[in-house]
Amino acid sequence: MHPAPSVIVFSVLSGAGFGLLAFLALGLPIVLGTDALLLWGAGYALAVTGLVASTFHLGNPRRALKAYTQWRTSWLSREAWAATGTLVLLAPVALAAVFGVPMPAHFGIVGTVLALLTVFSTAQIYAQLATVPRWNHGSVPAIFLVFSLAGGAILAGAQIPAAVLTVLLAPLLVWSFRDGDTRFARRGETLQSATGLGPDPRVLAQAHTAPNYLMREMIFRVGRKHSRRLRIIAVLCAAVLPAAITLFVPPIPPVRVGAFLIHLMGAFAQRWLFFAEAEHVVGLYYGAR
């Protein structure tokens, strides 16, 4: 699948933003005044920047409001509702913290649930697609949620959750990379099942001489040769280094921001691979995945 920058930026930044909001809403940590302005501001800025970026890959962004209508069936629509719901619901909690009157912690619990639901919906947009076997797996929402919460915990300075989540993320990532490699074969779709021809059909002539939308969008092979190195970068930067920093360096603000930026680099590498390595069954018709 084509790794569109707008979607990568959206899912990484919004993911971290909603993760941060989830921790702040729970009162982990309780921040007031300027600290609150900075942390809540960062959460809102990350979430909103990501959401704005996501509209750049639409063919008709002017009609984006229509995406709220189909929440009964569409994960994309549910994501829009959950994201808006989180941002609206947590606004009074954030303002109260900035003005120095913390609201009771249980008030934020609904906001935390909605923030996590947003990230879950984002992941489900991909995980629901039987056509992309690498994505069509229960571990995809798990990885999106762990990424979101880990990023949020690092920035919020919630030491124990940050350590637990980043330590958990490393084996989860390694396993998902390796397991993902075999999912297309396990799904069992081949040119034979795609065309009903057999045995062992092969492409004689392409249907068109220049690439089309399908090939640009669903068949992406550039840069897959660097996937090994990018996988190592993803595991090191997103999980191992932030875990070491959280465990062994005192959580003063510059350290937290540094650890967060390193984690984001790893998250970008992982998300790029998430798209670039995903293979769509339509590629079978072109003899290319």
């Binding site: 063919g59 008709n60 962004p61 229509k66 399908l214 969008e217």
Partner: peptide, 20 residues
């Protein structure tokens, strides 16, 4: 009503949909 998000093209196994 289409916003051109392309998700329907991703969901189709047969490559039946293209973005204009």
């Amino acid at each position: 009503a289409c916003i051109g998000c392309g998700l329907c093209a991703w969901a189709c196994p047969y490559g039946a949909r293209e973005l204009d």
